[in-house]
Design a protein around this nucleic acid. Structure first.
Lengths: 216, 216
DNA sequence: CATGCGCTTTTGTGATCACAAATGAACGCG
DNA sequence: CGCGTTCATTTGTGATCACAAAAGCGCATG
């Protein structure tokens, strides 16, 4: 019986490493909308050949994190207002369901973790750090949704986050306010009270609040 | 002013052609769950080298249409009952919204088209042809949802269909009944009456009906 | 007959190269 | 000075190859 205690891959696949790093940067808004990328540039940046760069790009294009022109040029997507509205509606649909499924499993330790993350969110807002804000905000939501035990739904939600990443940065760049996140507190309060309708409303409000900045 | 009337690509990209054909086969349930594929096999089947085969597979894996073992082996996914429930819930969430958005734009010509498609669905059911049933059933839904003018949502819905494709065939293989699609008639009736709550209920019922076969 | 071992084959990964199309800049013409 | 043309450069695509790991298979052993 040769049971190796560590079946972890000692050599992480190159294309996967490139994919993961690019994905994180895009989701957190590190790359502005419409920014052009090249396969050779990516390969050079991550010290790999064109092949893994192409595979990671292909994957990110499939997830909507990058877009390709009909001639194959790669760039972060430029979202129309209609598409942003759609993505926000998808967030509302999926994340309200995820929160609802997480509610019966949300015990006190989780709520405390959410409060700690929320403090980091408030800090990022105070420092006007858009990338930190996006990252901690998503961490808040993901931490809650992980409790729903619904990996397919969570993956869908993350895909939507990914598509909005570059635009989110540009959007929150206009954000003048330094308020701590209001709806996050409502979410936590609803979790504590076991109030499902309140939770659904709070999540929906939090997810669609960014849309108001578009109207201006 | 050199405006070419046909900017269509005369040489369709190889990887895209392979991707599209594989995607269609998977979505329609042409490939059973757990079926193994190889890059060289795909390349040989579509008369391309490994490179386009790899890219199309990478894309399909990103969409959940195929799954890869940790050693890179490719196969259609074997869905657990929990995952099927999740995907059905996602269908319900997204497609109810799509139908709701399509309702105000649904005029008579659309309803007639839906009835024609529905006749083909009934024919497929009568012939016990699972693949035809899946194809025409999805055509029914897609035709309705296209009216919603919500491409991001439709893409999400199609991704869910894609993930369920192989399993759908196995599921409907157990279907003994030869009834014409009942809920499709309800959908059409609700569209005709402009009855939004009725439409939402009918779509939700149609989308989740397949789950009952799992309980048995 | 079941099981563990070793070998052959299969398979995915990544690098490199040739090629064609698109891009962009320099140039010249009106 | 504006604008179309031409050409060098950049860029994505697809094919091929070497390589290592995994899988499948047969054989010997208990």
């Amino acid at each position: 019986m040769n049971l190796t205690p560590r079946p972890v891959d000692p050599t992480p696949l190159a294309h996967d490493r490139v994919y993961r790093q690019l994905r994180t940067r895009i989701m957190h808004g590190d790359i502005p909308p419409g920014h052009a990328l090249t396969l050779r540039g990516i390969g050079k940046e991550y010290d790999v050949s064109m092949t893994p760069a192409r595979e990671s790009v292909r994957r990110l294009v499939a997830e909507g994190a990058l877009s390709m022109s009909n001639s194959g040029r790669i760039s972060t997507p430029l979202l129309s207002n209609e598409r942003i509205e759609e993505l926000a509606a998808l967030r509302a649909l999926i994340e309200v369901e995820l929160a609802s499924r997480a509610l019966p499993r949300a015990h006190l330790a989780l709520i405390e973790r959410l409060q700690n993350i929320n403090a980091k969110v408030a800090e990022a807002v105070a420092h006007r750090d858009a990338v930190s804000y996006i990252r901690t905000n998503l961490e808040f939501h993901r931490t809650l949704y992980l409790r729903a035990q619904a990996p397919a739904m969570l993956a869908m939600a993350e895909t939507v986050w990914l598509q909005m990443g570059p635009t989110m940065n540009a959007l929150y760049g206009r954000l003048r306010r330094t308020d701590p996140p209001h709806f996050h507190r409502l979410i936590i309060a609803a979790l504590r009270a076991g109030d499902e309708p309140g939770l659904r409303l709070a999540v929906r409000s939090d997810v669609t609040q960014g849309l108001r900045m578009l109207a201006s």
